[in-house]
């Protein structure tokens, strides 16, 4: 068994990379998969607080890179899900403390013993982003249904293809079905029309995400919240399962078409 390395990135900041990394990690681990989440946002560490593991940090990723500890020593095991691990970022250093080669070398060490390595990329297209995608087998591009976020996602899709890390898959986060329905928010179909990329998840705007962040318990720990369910769906799709997409205001457009296609296929 060899781990699959998945990087979550976006170009634009604040669209939900860290939230997605933590929750996809939780969702995968809750099905028994062995998962390591790596915070590659050096200097702006956050995955630890989103996962609720901030009080248990001793060593960080830069300590490993610079040889102050073994990779194993920097890994924090989640007590709620014992196949879930975090490798935190250094908080007092910057992105230049790590190179793309370091990322490849250290994630390779994890391949044998784990099923998934999830990398939380920093925003931007500079060194931190390049570090984060260097070891990736698959890149997930996360965006929001807004002009600026989708534009940045398009740029990232281009860069990933140029680095021969494509084709990536898209997560559309913070969708408000009500706004999509009344024509005031880009729907899934609109975003896919302009981006030409495969969709792997649609996550609704959900207050539970903020409550979860407050408590350090990722929403996916509770599969009953809307966002939590969406992250579980993504985890299943990553594992190769065929999970239908929930209708989040796409109306009769995208989802109507898909279900019609499936119906038509079923009858013939």
């Amino acid at each position: 068994m060899s781990a699959k390395i998945v990087t979550i990135t976006s170009g634009k900041g604040g669209v939900g990379k860290t939230t997605a990394t933590a929750n996809i990690g939780v969702a995968l681990a809750s099905t028994g998969e062995r998962v390591v989440c790596i915070d590659a946002d050096i200097g702006l560490r956050n995955l630890d607080v989103i996962m609720g593991l901030e009080n248990r940090i001793v060593y960080d990723f830069v300590d490993v890179v610079e040889g102050r500890c073994k990779l194993r020593q920097a890994m924090i095991r989640d007590k709620r899900l014992d196949t879930l691990f975090l490798i935190p970022a250094a908080q007092t250093r910057d992105k230049t403390a790590v190179s793309p080669k370091d990322m490849v070398r250290l994630t390779n060490e994890l391949r044998q013993e784990y099923d998934w390595v999830l990398i939380d990329s920093p925003a931007g297209i500079e060194r931190g982003f390049r570090n984060a995608i260097a070891p990736a087998d698959l890149v997930l591009i996360i965006t929001n249904p807004e002009v600026s976020a989708v534009r940045d996602a398009d740029r990232i899709i281009g860069l990933i293809e140029a680095e021969e890390k494509g084709p990536g898959k898209l997560i559309l986060n913070r969708v408000k079905p009500e706004m999509v329905r009344r024509g005031d928010m880009l729907g899934t179909e609109d975003v896919l029309d302009v981006l030409a990329i495969e969709l792997i998840g649609i996550v609704p705007e959900d207050e539970s995400v903020i409550v979860a962040t407050n408590q350090g318990v990722p929403v996916a720990m509770d599969a009953n919240s809307k966002a939590g369910r969406a992250f579980h769906d993504i985890a299943h799709r990553l594992k190769g399962e065929d999970v239908p997409f929930a209708d989040l205001g796409g109306g009769d457009g995208f989802f109507g078409r898909i279900s019609r296609m499936m119906r038509a296929g079923g009858e013939s």
Partner: peptide, 13 residues
Amino acid sequence: RSRSAKSAKERLQ
């Protein structure tokens, strides 16, 4: 005005 999603899409394209 409603249907701002339409202008969002056109501007994006």
